[in-house]
Amino acid sequence: MSVIAFLIIAAEVGFWVFIAAGLVTRYLLGKKRLGLLLLAMTPVLDLILLIATTYDILANDATATAAHGIAAIYLGVSLTFGKRMIRWADERFRYHIMKKGPRPVKRYGYDHARHELSGSLLHVLAWVLGGGYLFLLIRLAGNPEQTEVLLQILKVWTLVAAIDLALSLSYFIWPRKAKTDSAR
């Protein structure tokens, strides 16, 4: 396994460890500032991954691998969805662990469609950030053979983002319906 692949795994594990530690510290230990500090450490992991990936391609003249491309996707997704994922975990922690706070919302109809569209638009923003980073790496490396895999990953990610957007738009045509109780 490459160093970059290891760093991606470490960043993802670290992301959830910092979130869990932040929530436990915040709610179970009652130390809100320390909990907030732990939650705020998640972007530091992104920065470490960004520096390592850039250094590996540009300074080491490494031939880009799928791990380098996935690192860019991870960075884009983490930057755009990070706050939303922390909010999601916070809501569920308060409800399921602390037994406080409202039940997490199940969305239906146009509320669900709007929520899905907002997620798809965040995906497009993640694509702009991560794809922009991939494009920048490709341009700065200046060697198409060294960065061919990055271009391929960018093409696949473009297709995935377009499909995601199309699916979320379909919920406006065919809204999700609440399940009915058929036992009556």
Rank of each mutant, 00 (worst) to 15 (best):
S2P: 02
S2Y: 04
F6Y: 11
L7M: 12
I9G: 12
F15E: 03
F15I: 04
W16T: 09
A20H: 11
A20M: 14
A21L: 15
A21F: 10
T25V: 06
G30M: 03
G30A: 05
G30R: 00
K32G: 04
K32A: 12
R33D: 12
R33F: 05
L34T: 10
G35K: 03
L36I: 00
L36Y: 05
A40C: 13
A40Y: 14
D46N: 13
L49M: 04
L50T: 06
T54G: 14
D56R: 08
L58Y: 00
A59D: 13
N60D: 07
N60T: 04
A64D: 07
T65L: 02
A66P: 00
A66Y: 10
H68T: 06
A71F: 06
A72D: 02
S78W: 02
T80W: 00
F81M: 02
F81Y: 10
G82H: 07
M85I: 13
R87W: 05
W88G: 01
A89L: 09
D90A: 02
R92L: 13
R94D: 11
K99R: 15
G101R: 00
R114Y: 06
R114A: 10
H115F: 13
L121T: 00
L122P: 11
V124F: 14
L125I: 11
A126C: 13
W127K: 01
V128I: 15
G132L: 03
F135V: 11
I138R: 05
R139M: 15
A141M: 08
G142F: 14
E145F: 13
L150S: 03
Q152E: 12
L154H: 02
V156N: 05
W157T: 14
L159W: 09
D164A: 14
L165F: 03
L165I: 02
A166K: 12
A166H: 07
S168G: 07
L169Q: 06
F172A: 06
I173D: 01
I173A: 14
K177N: 04
A178K: 13
S182K: 09
A183D: 15
R184S: 08
R184L: 14
